[in-house]
């Protein structure tokens, strides 16, 4: 009988192989560029990322202006090339979601679904695809049918109908996970086509339990004590209520993603993090880069440049140097 005790042990973070010099949260152009430089500087580097299509670059279809890459190339392909480059220097990438951080401990602790990792320095590169607002009923029914974690809550919906709302790797993975429990899974997709890795799209479309509703917006979560349905509207069609008892929401927006920090770092009114010229936040050894900052143009090449500045500063921080050392060639 497997009781999953390994999950608990991995969560303790005491294993020696979970100790890194630098843990980078977010595997877009910013985080991956940091990884290329830190791994090449012989720093033990881990990148934790939710998936190739989780971020702004990953869902961009055609890029022709990234220097040195004439394109057109998809964002996911460009990120994949960067990752391969970082991996060739020894960086480790894992697909996971960070659920908590302790930035005050020494070393710092990064808690993810598959385990807890320790790091001398942490680089935040989670981008700005956080949601700016919720739909009507979403907050009211949180924990009473509305969920953001199918792995945590799927077992409450055995033999019931549920809806998954979103269009990325995470949404499709969670919808597939829910087919283990639910009688039927509606996948509500705001755009006209699915945007996720090919094998996930294939599995979703092949699943007898999943009904994909393309070009459909979530308007409201409705219920009494518990969720009883979701009101949705197909593009150009009339609103309808789907009778479900669970609504799993994985929608994205344009706000910096900082919820996992649990207020350990101050944010501006817009939700952005503040850094110094070396990309260091108010907490020594904690750096923030890319679209988490509101100070510049949101372009992949600029995020990548942020990542390099942070990498040099991480090396300086870890080795106690007084000056930046930029001789990695």
């Amino acid at each position: 009988m497997d009781l999953g005790l390994d999950l608990g042990l991995s969560n303790l973070g005491a294993a020696a192989d979970n100790a890194y010099d630098v843990v980078i949260i977010g595997g877009g152009p910013a985080g991956t560029s940091t990884a290329i430089y830190t791994a090449r500087a012989d720093l033990r580097t881990l990148v934790i990322d939710k998936g190739l299509t989780a971020g702004a670059l990953g869902i961009t279809t055609k890029i022709s202006n990234y220097p040195g890459v004439p394109g057109p190339i998809s964002g996911a392909e460009l990120v994949e090339i960067m990752r391969q480059q970082a991996e060739s220097f020894g960086a480790t990438f894992i697909t996971d979601k960070v659920v908590g951080l302790d930035l005050s401990s020494d070393p710092k602790m990064v808690m993810a679904g598959t385990g807890t990792f320790t790091a001398k320095a942490v680089v935040l590169a989670t981008g700005s695809m956080g949601r700016t607002s919720s739909v009507k009923g979403e907050e009211e029914f949180l924990g009473r049918g509305v969920s953001y974690c199918a792995t945590c809550d799927g077992a409450f919906f055995r033999d019931q109908d549920v809806a998954v709302i979103g269009n990325n790797d995470e949404a499709l993975e969670e919808a597939l996970f829910l087919t283990k429990f639910a009688a039927k899974v509606y996948l509500i997709v705001p755009t006209p086509e699915l945007k996720a890795r090919e094998f996930l799209v294939h599995e979703i479309t092949e699943s007898a339990k999943v009904e994909v509703m393309l070009g459909t917006r979530l308007k409201e979560v409705i219920g009494e004590t518990l969720v009883t349905g979701v009101r949705v509207q197909p593009r150009g069609g009339a609103e309808q209520v789907l009778p479900v008892s669970g609504a799993f929401v994985y929608l994205q927006g344009g706000k910096p993603i900082t919820d996992y920090l649990m207020e350990q770092l101050p944010t501006s009114v817009e939700g952005c993090l503040a850094v110094d010229a070396e990309m260091q936040t108010a907490v020594p050894g904690v750096f923030a880069i890319g679209d988490l900052l509101c100070t510049h143009i949101k372009q992949a090449v600029i995020a990548a440049a942020d990542g390099v500045i942070a990498a040099v500063a991480v090396d300086k921080y870890i080795h106690g140097r007084k000056k930046l050392q930029i001789d990695w060639n």
Partner: peptide
Amino acid sequence: GIPSGYEFSSIIE
């Protein structure tokens, strides 16, 4: 209830 899965870490902690 059983302290299994992730909750095994709680009992150790």
